[in-house]
């Protein structure tokens, strides 16, 4: 049919390639991912990287600046900072991961519960958690330490985990509210599926993408929280090496102006946090892809 008519004045559209050819690595945080992988493998394989025993107090060489024997110098107690970075990094990363696991589990369960409840129950639940979460973390930390005795990796992760699940919980709740009336959920309910069955089989696969960003941000926040707590002397003790507890010596370091004690662990902490953040950001959908009307 089409060939029989010719539209007068029609301009045949020139053939243009729709997308510019992009190399596979463009728009992806390749450099930071490699950096993060390097740090993480270095920390978890710290036995291979370390040049000294990280807990050994070398009293002949305390507070010495970086040199050939002690690559990053030694701290005020005579420990080798280069070895401590990798050894302590493992602790920091483990705390970040364990705390996030706890907060993610709590957030998903709470969010799903609150999202699938009737409206008024949902409101009451949100109010109650808001009140509970306005109890400052400091009090919880001190209390938990008093109950559990000396702080260790697990108790710190636990404290950080149970104080940091709210953001995930809120996102899950909104998502579940949107999904709650979908036919397959109702069908599953009709066939006698319990709450955890529906949560695991039907809801979780649907909310993974939106929760993933929050989870990664939670890892970052947990590592940050650990370092802050240990720095204040309320988290891990100085003997238990982590990036935070290494920094807790920095008040002494300030007096002697030994910059390496402050700068080096802090830079490692910062680089890790930045890499994790940019990973999280690249996971998030790019919102501003439309052209500006301005």
């Amino acid at each position: 049919m089409r060939e029989q008519f010719e539209i007068v004045g029609m301009l045949p559209a020139p053939h243009t390639p729709i997308e510019k050819k992009r190399k596979w690595y463009q728009g992806k945080p390749v450099f930071r991912t490699i950096l993060l992988v390097l740090i993480v493998t270095g920390c978890f394989a710290c036995d291979l990287v370390m040049t000294k025993e990280p807990t050994y107090l070398d009293l002949n060489h305390f507070n010495s600046a970086p040199n050939r024997e002690f690559l990053f110098g030694t701290d005020t107690m005579g420990r080798d900072i280069f070895s401590m970075i990798w050894y302590g990094g493992r602790t920091s990363l483990v705390i970040g991961i364990v705390a996030t696991a706890i907060s993610t589990a709590m957030g998903i369960i709470f969010g799903a519960l609150s999202g699938s409840m009737p409206d008024w129950m949902d409101k009451v639940l949100m109010r109650l958690t808001e009140i509970l979460l306005s109890v400052p973390g400091l009090l919880l930390v001190v209390l938990l330490q008093a109950v559990l005795g000396k702080a260790n990796v697990l108790s710190i992760s636990f404290v950080i985990g149970i104080t940091g699940w709210m953001s995930i919980g809120k996102v899950v709740r909104t998502e579940v509210k949107g999904l709650g009336n979908k036919e397959y959920v109702i069908a599953s309910k009709c066939m006698g599926g319990g709450f955890f069955h529906i949560l695991g089989k039907h809801l979780t696969p649907n909310i993974v993408s939106s929760v993933m960003f929050m989870v990664i941000m939670n890892v970052r926040n947990a590592i940050m929280a650990e370092s802050a707590l240990s720095f204040m002397g309320l988290g891990l003790p100085v003997e238990e090496i982590s990036w935070g507890s290494m920094l807790s010596l920095s008040q002494n370091a300030l007096l002697t102006n030994s910059w390496w004690i402050i700068l080096i662990p802090g830079s490692f902490l910062l680089v890790t946090l930045m890499c994790v953040t940019s990973l999280g950001n690249s996971l998030r959908k790019k919102i501003n892809q439309k052209d500006s009307n301005l």
């Binding site: 300030l254 700068l263 802090g266 946090l273």
Partner: peptide, 14 residues
């Protein structure tokens, strides 16, 4: 925004 507050303070003092 990634720099922990306490480390920022330490840097400023240093």
């Amino acid at each position: 925004s990634c720099i922990p507050e306490f480390w920022m303070s330490l840097l400023l003092i240093l």
